[in-house]
Design a protein around this nucleic acid. Structure first.
Lengths: 248, 248
DNA sequence: AAAGGTCTTTCTTTCGAAAATCCATCCTGC
DNA sequence: GCAGGATGGATTTTCGAAAGAAAGACCTTT
């Protein structure tokens, strides 16, 4: 009891300070905390696909009350990461080959268009961001592959990968396309294979090379080629995952 | 004692009846009621764009408590129909020419792909549904135009229009594309002009003719042509609305 | 022993109030 | 006169409990 009140007072005070730029800003509401943490835990597989998300369990895990949890679950439901059955609560959305391919092809549709527009609007800052993201991704990939990769290394690699793909389409000037790309990224991310993250199969595919080709086509203002390469990149990833997860 | 048992038994029995098909099924939860009604009221302009959605107001209007209202608002937030500011509540998403065009072009992207796939997968039932929807739309359009159109006529016309466009893409076999099409339909519907619904400008454009051409291209298995016509149809509508609403 | 119905348990959903926050207004001190 | 801070009312957000529904346990009856 006391601990809770103390905690909350601390947060209040912190929230009153107007968010120093550059620093990790304090979350504004508990609903936002619940949303962020739940999304992360679903995408990263802490909760298995199909698993019922019992409110009492979540309440204990996150130390929150029902209201913010239900709000977060409703948002995730709209994003297709959880399914809801009336009067029977929420579950993690199930996975299947069909769902994975639907998410993958929809992602290709969205990001292809976003990439075309991003190239058309491309400027110096856009190019610089892509080059920087590619470089950071390569460094982190090497770091993750070489020595025994820590969990943080794997997490960093995913963040760099996300940033690289986001940088490519960042100049498309469509808030909807960017939002959908983010959402579909989260959905496809659920099919990521733990065994492959730094494993042997990765060597078969020259992922870094694929990234480089996409980047060069984008910077060279060759939209058709860039889109073809990007689609192939995503389809290869999906095929790899389908083969391992659904044993086609 | 007895009363309690009776009450519970009565409700059990009612709930146990498995929702007679065709009849208006009882809404399962109050959250679902709140979602449906709020969405309708936002799309149809009962709440003006930008207007704050005060919870107390909504509570009185719908006779619901905070919890189901907040859940509905969160879902609508994910659909971009309402915007949320932390600790300052929800507002109806504002409208602008930029937003309208983003919604329109995104809708064209989604529905074009869905239409291509729908044509590729098309079967007899799909064709029949399109023809039936087109016919029903024409009848209702005539009914709405001829005599003094009642509010119900206008509402019916919108429903027929929605069903026609939905029938075209219904066979695409992608739950995501269908869901996004529905969502983007709601967003673009907000820019509908009351003055034009049965008004004079409608005569300038041969909307029924555009619909017929799209249908014929689809039934004739000419995906490229169908997609071109559909995109032109949506762009013309958007141009009309931009001219009237944002006085370009 | 099986079928059918009733009770118990578990869980979701809803409610109303309490806590926390924002915003506008007013007051104080310079 | 005005900047700056306190104050009050309106509003959102959160909480914990009560109500409602589903699933399984249990008991009766045949």
């Amino acid at each position: 009891m006391t601990t809770i009140r103390e905690d909350r007072n601390v947060k209040r005070t912190a929230a009153a300070i107007p968010a120093e730029p550059g620093s990790d800003r304090e979350e504004q509401t508990l609903s936002a905390v619940a949303y962020r943490r739940l999304r992360q835990d679903i995408v990263s597989g802490v909760f298995a696909p199909g698993q019922p998300l019992r409110l009492e369990l979540l309440r204990q895990r996150y130390g929150l009350s029902f209201s913010p949890l239900r709000e977060a679950l409703n948002r995730l439901h709209a994003e297709r990461l959880v399914v809801a059955a009336a009067l029977r609560g929420f579950s993690v959305a199930p996975v299947s080959a069909d769902e994975m391919w639907d998410a993958t092809e929809t992602r290709i549709l969205i990001e292809s268009e976003a990439l075309r527009r991003s190239i058309a609007n491309g400027d110096d800052a856009w190019e610089a961001r892509i080059v920087a993201a590619f470089h950071a991704l390569e460094l982190q990939a090497r770091r993750t592959r070489s020595n025994a990769a820590s969990d943080d290394d794997v997490w960093q690699l995913e963040a760099r990968h996300r940033e690289f793909h986001h940088a490519l389409i960042a100049n498309c000037r469509s808030p909807r396309l960017l939002g959908l790309a983010d959402q579909l990224h989260a959905e496809t991310q659920r099919y990521r294979l733990p065994s492959l993250t730094g494993g042997s199969r990765a060597a078969i595919r020259d992922i870094a090379g694929e990234h480089r080709e996409i980047m060069e086509a984008a910077l060279g203002r060759a939209p058709a080629e860039a889109v073809t390469l990007l689609a192939a990149h995503y389809r290869r990833t999906a095929e790899e995952r389908a083969a391992a997860l659904f044993s086609d």
